[in-house]
């Protein structure tokens, strides 16, 4: 079941345990992300996919376990070493996280201005290039408030790629994109990966797209890795859990609801009583 991905690992996670309050999000999870490949991560909403990316980026601290990125233990690094490592990572936030007081152009230019001393003309070229790749070169002097949800996410994608990172973490890049843009983005991610040797982590709910570009897939649920393998292997997996999730069926072993008390308790439903008049 938990097939190890082929290729040299870039990220290795050992026995990762993390909880939010009393809720256990990860229970001794181990997985590895191969270098130069696209690794898809899927799972029901609220399982902790975003949390996993934040743990890899060193924004959250695990209760136990280790995260190794390129041979460095993320959570034992000094702040400056962590920042040096982060410069080699790009992250597309689930909600964009664009800087609202800057224009589209300045948002994409932000990492360049902060971390390089490139001349203005070079920055301009680089920014327009990245924006062109996501189809928004014409929107470069819009303000962030003037963007649609899908456009904002594409700007965030351009920004994540601005420093030509070695690892990019895409947190749901396809949400809110029209079918045409979606196709372009899928090809863009594939192309970046093939042409630049980028390693990507792709968190997405779009089963078809993820299956089509991922080299390796992890299915997370209930704090564990439920299934892992190549897209073909996952699709062929006979376990009812995997089948239900991949095909989007409501009934099966995967709970649709966040853990909750029985319905009767929450709604204070009375025991059915006979009405006198009937």
């Amino acid at each position: 079941m938990s097939a190890v991905p082929s290729g040299e690992p870039l990220i290795e996670i050992h026995n990762l345990t993390f909880s939010r309050g009393s809720r256990l999000i990860f229970d001794r999870v181990s997985l590895s992300i191969p270098r130069g490949k696209i690794t898809g991560i899927m799972g029901p909403s609220g399982t902790g996919k975003t949390t996993l990316l934040k743990l890899i980026g060193g924004q959250l601290r695990p209760d136990a376990g280790e995260v190794w990125v390129d041979g460095q233990n993320v959570h034992s690094l000094s702040r400056s070493a962590l920042f040096a490592l982060r410069k080699r990572m790009g992250m597309l936030f689930q909600h964009g996280a664009l800087l609202t007081d800057l224009s589209v152009f300045e948002n994409v230019a932000f990492p360049l201005r902060e971390h390089t001393c490139l001349p203005e003309s070079m920055i301009r070229d680089l920014v327009l290039m990245k924006l062109n790749a996501v189809g928004l070169r014409g929107a470069h002097d819009l303000h962030t408030a003037e963007l649609s949800g899908g456009m904002a996410r594409r700007v965030a994608l351009a920004r994540a790629l601005a420093l030509d990172p070695e690892l990019v973490m895409f947190d749901e890049p396809f949400t809110g994109q029209d079918p045409m843009t979606l196709g372009v983005l899928v090809r863009l991610i594939r192309k970046l990966n093939d042409a630049l040797g980028l390693s990507s982590i792709l968190v997405s709910h779009d089963v078809a797209e993820t299956l089509s570009i991922a080299d390796h897939l992890y299915l997370l649920a209930e704090g564990r890795v439920i299934a892992s393998g190549t897209p073909a292997a996952i699709q062929a997996d006979a376990s009812p859990w995997v089948q239900q999730f991949m095909q989007g069926m409501a009934d099966g072993p995967v709970p649709f609801h966040y853990p909750a008390a029985p319905l009767q308790d929450d709604f204070h439903l009375p025991k059915v009583q006979e009405c006198d008049r009937c």
Partner: peptide, 14 residues
């Protein structure tokens, strides 16, 4: 609340 500060942190900007 819009994760801009977290976003900066991830871009290695304090």
């Amino acid at each position: 609340s819009t994760e801009q500060l977290a976003g900066m942190e991830m871009m290695a900007v304090d």
